[in-house]
Design a protein around this nucleic acid. Structure first.
Length: 1064
RNA sequence: GGGCCGAUAGCUCAAUCAGGUUGAGCGCCACUCUGAUAAGGUGGAGGCUCUCGGUUCAAAUCCGAGUCGGCCCA
């Protein structure tokens, strides 16, 4: 790229971004940037692997954009950053998609198709999906190591999972056991609790009576799952709760029923009882040990009847809801199971993994449990055990993939018993910093405290096989062999296996056996819960243990960064696995962001087609704009609402930057400005105040952005940068410096301005580079030509240059800008355009800082306000022409006046007095509030009221009033002369533009004014007019561009012609 | 049903920790400016700060109870 080359008039993101992609390819920009930092301090970032289903949505896009902005920033800070992206490619979601594609109904179809074929189909599908994501992420401008992502299906990654699991096993944290789990009866596997989706469904709602054995009456329980009644083992009560026995009448018969006191009315009305009387009242505790009859004793002969079964026990899951007595089946419910285990009960679960009753269910054998509900209800009725039967709509768990209602059953599963290391987990939480902090200290800690053992086994195909071999005649967890690596596998199995080439998927390893000391071991057929895959990502990213060259140096990760749903997901699984395997959290910093929501605040949902497609956002506004929009949101942990308005605003900001950037280029080119020879430090003595100011602002912007970035607040860093570019550089500096650049003559001042704006742009574009990598590249290339790096992303993050730090100047200019703004307001009130000079501006300063600022920069202020004179009234003086009112300071008034403070405040606001004294004010207020008041100086600030010929506007900073600026708008001939001349100039300029004349083009001007006084006023300034519009002479023009104007009510006819043409 | 977070102008957010007459940017409307021009400037409209209680002279802010949204859990 040539330095200061011509650039597009308009910022055109699509054309530009296409060009930059090509450019990056040409110069190997990414590779160079990585190499550039290869000697830097390491920074181990680990990518949370997106699941390979579908294409990137707005949330993924936000996530990767956040990662990208930080990685680019860290590289600019000199770090050698690990940036290997990852993909989560195993698991049930892909299996069910493939099943759909192949038209499968259940596991039998898969078995018939063949495990090997099915696994191959899953692999192909996952690979396809991965390609879609890869190309999306690259298209968003994310720079990661796309040539070498980690894939959870690769042998070395699967080995990393084996290794981690084996380390946990070494520590005695792996066990096989019964657990109550959520089972998808279609997928025929356990699914994790966080894979259960709750939906409202209509289910039976039945009240069942359990006849008591040793006394008259029955217990009443309520359930929505009649199919669990066969497995009833005990009834739970709350020991503290009051229960009542009631004798109730129905159809001429009387029953004695036991329920919680609070539930009596409801239960009896459910049962359509007409009348009742309370015959007994007792606590739950007193009911413990009561024995009852199983209501389906005949239908289910094998029902629980061991010592202690079918009795009342206490449990902490009982509430005074429905009946206050809870039907408990340890073979099904999770809490029932836990309590059953405490009681030492054997587990009775007459339901198989497919949701079908086994022979233990007696009469119901072979039926799908949900289908058996009606028959069970009928049997209960026939047995006189049904108090009432209806339906209820409630939320019930479903399989997240196939939407089948789950069944809670007890099965054999493999666990990592993280409850054994709970203390260690909680300690390890402390070792990491979380952004925001509350996510760790509230949410995450609560979750970890309550976390149960981790069920890592799934009875499926597409996953990492459990590396566990058991003696072939046994199915418990004694004497197991846990293999940790492919090397070890090859050494120990009976078959010939090449560790270099072996694929570890189920179809391969299922056939492998181990024979040691005369015992043959076979592999447990399960695969891992897919959450285990990603839980080993920190060492999986390093290909450890296959490659142990970097683990020691890099592990644990410096940073991970995901959305808040991962608190229970990846943040947790990694902590669990890291602690179980290595006794340590695998990450040191967590940055948590939110979800991308729809513009109206709804959650985006692909399946419901409620979404904003990132590709559409790019089509409309480009990648830089989309990234800047995403990165300008949001406080850490908060959700982000997508907004097309917000996108448009970002595009406007970038266009402003583009205009700022291209503005000085033609002048620099014309004057042959060479930044490599003339740095801003070389022209320090020629810098004007405004140059020094913008350089000072640049320093504080850099400092502010760096601080924000270090707190992972890229949103605040970006808004600081935008404010600098839009407010300070574009609206103030460039405005102020334009005339210097138009100056045709060589001047030190102009060179100083070039050097200043060059430095500002050069550093601004580096500050912007992590956010908007494309446009930054284009600007950087144009500014540096061959003199810089091949890519802006190789630049160092701009450091604060102490020599240009000047806080006082920044404060001064902030004051001046406030005055200028108020002055513009006052001018408008006085009806005087900025083009017309005013004789004087009076600044009444409230404090010395303002007074000093005005004093130091009177000329600048006069220039900006187009005033002949600036008069300062210092804080201890006052301007005689004013009357006053007062404003109250409530923080003073409140304590002093108590409940009268509000009334006093209003009186103060209303008061009008001639001089700003407390006496006068007290008098005015006393009249209004009907009683005397003692005011203190600190309670009020006086506000001046302007005379007629003067307009005044208060100015302030950060909400504090700092003074008032008065514009005296009276006219003199001299002022009118310049005013009219400027009006003419403005119109000639517009006509020049009509003709599309070059800035340098000389013209002749014809000027006829339909008012002698005004004509003579303009004539006085003929020289000024000629100079400004580049007219060589004023004379009649024959064939020129001619226009008639109305200038302040006076008709003015203007004609212009290029000089070259008119003389030819 | 439980936990966490959020609720302030049409939109995105500040101000909440440490109580003192609610602010910014964007959008809208009017006016204005014109060699950065799909810009710039000035003004205006627009807020019972989600609701209801409490503490206090004074609450967006502190306390309690709700409502709605998001996430997580059951």
């Amino acid at each position: 790229m040539d330095r200061f080359a011509e650039v597009d008039d308009q910022y055109d993101p699509h054309e530009l971004e296409g060009r930059i992609f090509d450019y990056w390819d040409d110069v190997d920009a990414y590779e160079q940037t990585v190499d550039h930092r290869s000697d830097g301090e390491t920074y181990f970032f680990v990518d949370g692997p997106p699941y390979t289903s579908g294409s990137a949505h707005m949330g993924t896009t936000w996530n990767k954009s956040l990662k990208d902005v930080l990685l680019r920033f860290l590289r600019m800070r000199g770090y050698d950053v690990t940036d290997r992206p990852g993909y989560d490619m195993h698991g049930l979601p892909i299996e069910t998609r493939v099943e759909e594609q192949l038209g499968f109904e259940n596991k039998k179809d898969i078995e018939e198709f063949g495990e090997e074929n099915f696994i191959e189909a899953c692999k192909e599908y996952a690979d396809e999906q991965l390609e879609g994501l890869q190309s999306d992420f690259q298209d968003f401008g994310v720079w990661m190591d796309w040539d070498d992502p980690y894939r959870t299906v690769s042998p070395e990654y699967m080995e990393a999972a084996w290794w981690g699991f084996s380390k946990a096993a070494d520590r005695g944290l792996v066990e096989k056991g019964h657990r109550s789990i959520s089972q998808c009866p279609r997928c025929e596997t356990a699914i994790a609790n966080n894979e259960v989706e709750y939906e409202d469904v209509e289910d039976p709602s039945i009240y069942v009576t359990f006849d008591l054995r040793d006394r008259e009456g029955a217990l009443v329980v309520w359930t929505t799952t009649p199919w669990t009644i066969p497995a009833n083992t005990f009834v739970a009560v709350d020991p503290e709760l009051t229960y009542q026995g009631v004798r109730a009448e129905r159809d001429g018969e009387s029953d004695v029923l036991y329920v919680a006191e609070a539930c009596v009315e409801e239960v009896l009305s459910e049962g359509r009882y007409e009348e009742y009387e309370v015959v007994e009242e007792l606590s739950g505790e007193e009911m413990v040990g009561w024995a009852y009859e199983h209501p389906l004793a005949e239908e289910v002969p094998d029902h629980a009847d061991h010592e202690g079964a079918l009795e009342v026990y206490t449990a902490d899951y009982v509430e005074a809801d429905r009946t206050g007595l809870v039907h408990s089946a340890p073979g099904h419910g999770e809490v029932d199971f836990e309590r059953g285990r405490e009681l030492g009960f054997p587990i009775f679960c007459p339901v198989g993994g497919d949701g079908v009753y086994t022979d233990e269910a007696g009469k119901y054998e072979g039926q799908f449990v949900k289908a058996a509900d009606d028959e069970i209800i009928d049997d209960l009725r026939a047995n006189g055990a049904l108090l009432s039967s209806g339906t209820v709509t409630h939320s019930y768990g479903h399989c997240w993939r196939c939407d089948t209602g789950i069944v809670q059953i007890v099965t054999d599963q493999w666990f990592i018993t993280i409850t054994d290391v709970k203390d260690e987990l909680l300690e390890n939480i402390e070792d990491g910093e979380w952004y925001p902090g509350w996510a760790r200290d509230n949410r995450f800690r609560d979750f970890v405290e309550d976390a149960p053992d981790w069920n890592v086994s799934r009875q499926r195909y597409w996953g990492i096989p459990l590396p566990v071999w058991t003696p072939e005649d046994r199915d418990d967890d004694e004497d197991t062999i846990v293999i940790s690596t492919r090397e070890e596998l090859a050494e120990r199995v009976d078959q010939d296996v090449d560790p270099e080439t072996v694929d570890l998927h189920k179809d391969t390893v299922d056939d492998l056996t181990i024979t040691e000391n005369g015992t043959t071991y076979t592999r447990v057929p399960d695969v891992f819960d897919v959450w285990l895959d990603s839980s080993v990502a920190t060492w999986g990213t390093l290909d450890f243990p296959e490659d142990d060259s970097r683990f020691e140096e890099l592990w644990p990760a410096d940073l991970i960064l995901e959305a808040h749903d991962q608190t229970r997901g990846w943040f947790w699984s990694q902590l669990g696995m890291g602690t179980a395997a290595l006794g340590q959290s695998p990450y040191e910093r967590v940055l948590m962001h939110g979800h991308a929501l729809m513009p109206d605040g709804r959650a985006m949902s692909k399946s419901k087609d409620i979404l904003v497609d990132p590709h559409e956002a790019i089509d409309r506004h480009g990648r830089d704009v989309m990234r800047m929009f995403l990165l300008s949101n949001n406080p850490q942990g908060d959700d982000m609402r997508f907004s097309w308005d917000g996108m448009q605003t970002m595009e406007n900001h970038l266009r402003t930057l583009w205009n700022v950037f291209r503005f000085p280029l033609p002048y620099m080119r014309l004057d042959g400005f060479d930044p490599s020879e003339t740095d801003v430090t070389d022209v320090e003595d020629d810098l004007e105040l405004i140059d020094e100011w913008i350089l000072a602002r640049l320093q504080s912007t850099k400092a502010e952005m760096t601080d924000h970035f270090e707190e992972f607040r890229q949103d605040r860093a970006l808004s600081a940068l935008i404010e600098f570019v839009v407010d300070d550089v574009s609206r103030f500096y460039v405005q102020a410096v334009r005339e210097r650049m138009w100056d045709e003559a060589e001047s030190d001042s102009k060179t100083a301005a070039y050097a200043t704006i060059y430095r500002v742009l050069r550093e601004t574009v580096a500050l912007l580079a992590p956010f908007a990598p494309f446009v930054s590249e284009e600007i950087y290339g144009t500014l540096t030509g061959d003199g810089g790096h091949d890519t802006v992303h190789m630049c160092d993050w701009p450091a604060v240059d102490e020599r240009f730090v000047d806080e006082r100047l920044e404060a001064d200019v902030a004051v001046l800008r406030a005055i200028e703004e108020a002055g513009a307001n006052a001018r408008q009130q006085a009806g005087r355009k900025l083009r017309w000079p005013v004789p004087r501006v009076v600044v009444v300063a409230d404090d010395d800082e303002v007074a000093d600022a005005v004093q130091r920069h009177t000329d600048l202020l006069a220039d900006r306000l187009n005033a002949r004179e600036v008069e300062l009234v210092s804080p201890d003086e006052r301007w005689a022409e004013l009357s006053y009112s007062a404003e109250a300071d409530m923080s003073e008034l409140g304590p002093a006046f108590g409940d009268r403070a509000g009334v006093v405040m209003n009186a103060l606001n209303e008061a009008r007095i001639d001089e700003p004294s407390l006496e006068a004010l007290e008098g005015a207020v006393a009249d209004a509030v009907d009683g005397s008041v003692d005011l203190e100086e600190s309670m009020v600030s006086f506000v001046a009221k302007t005379p007629d010929d003067v307009a005044g506007t208060a100015f302030g900073l950060d909400g504090d009033d700092r003074g008032v600026v008065y514009v005296d708008a009276s006219l003199t001939e001299e002022i009118e002369s310049e005013g009219y001349a400027r009006e003419v100039i403005r119109r000639v300029q517009e006509m020049r533009k009509d003709l599309d004349l070059d800035v340098e083009e000389r013209i002749v001007l014809e000027l006829s004014v339909d008012d002698d006084r005004v004509a003579s006023l303009i004539d006085d300034r003929a020289a000024l007019v000629c100079e400004e519009v580049r007219a060589d002479e004023i004379r009649a023009v024959d064939d020129g561009h001619r226009k008639e104007w109305d200038v302040e009510g006076v008709t003015v006819e203007l004609a212009i012609a290029p000089l070259a043409e008119s003389t030819a």
